[in-house]
Design a protein around this nucleic acid. Structure first.
Lengths: 118, 118
DNA sequence: GACACAATTCAATAAAAGTTGAAATATCAT
DNA sequence: ATGATATTTCAACTTTTATTGAATTGTGTC
């Protein structure tokens, strides 16, 4: 995976609306959901949902299929697996041993992380 | 990991400059690099680099340590591993079997992906 | 055909992110 | 103390992203 594509995928996941949306589609796999259902579940105005769906589509993280007058969206799970593989390889580049050393620990002590309720 | 933190991490990785920066720090682990070295390697003006370093710092993906008049930055690899774990769990939520089915395939045929040279 | 429904596009606006040069802060060397 | 170096902060500006209501497109139903 190229860096440009990877950063576009992270860009797509960088909004809480879009992250929630993608997670919802993952949970709804393999059937997916039509736009109206998504809007109702996520409590997002349709026009705004379209905006975010377009962002996810552009990254390739979701796909769409026409179904009568509905549009059905699905998560592109293989691409997510590729993204995970990219992250894994970038994270451990040149030193797989280093990641192995960390793998059993927790990420970081709470004190050094920003407060996510701000 | 909370959704808000996860999306903030993806936000941090959503810029190619910051993604390159993070990858550079991963390759430089565990020593890390001081700001000046990063600026020289990545060919980014110091003032702009500071801006992006702050973003990565805020997400928790990198850490900083004072070293005389230098500031040394390091990748927070455990947090990246947590992020990978988050993605893995979100991606396969409620259907680990589905991800297993995909794992040996390639992500998607090139035709349905946007052109990343645009 | 006329009407209702699903969803998008458009236009306007508000808010946030990115970039740059100049100024400020802090440390080291003489 | 003075000057050089490392890095950040500040202020101004440009660009991009997010949100919303109104208008548009396409499909199904009567």
């Amino acid at each position: 995976m190229k860096t440009a594509h990877a950063s576009s995928i992270f860009e797509a996941l960088s909004s809480e609306v879009r992250l929630d949306l993608f997670r919802l589609l993952v949970k709804s796999a393999p059937d997916g959901l039509v736009a109206g259902e998504i809007a109702r579940i996520l409590q997002v105005p349709g026009t705004n949902l379209s905006f975010h769906l377009k962002g996810l589509l552009h990254s390739g993280l979701i796909s769409v299929e026409k179904e009568g007058r509905f549009l059905r969206y699905r998560a592109n799970i293989p691409l997510m697996l590729d993204t995970i593989a990219y992250l894994t390889s970038e994270c451990c580049a040149n030193q797989p041993e280093q990641c192995r050393r960390y793998r059993t620990q927790s990420a970081v002590s709470p004190a050094v992380l920003p407060d996510w309720n701000d």
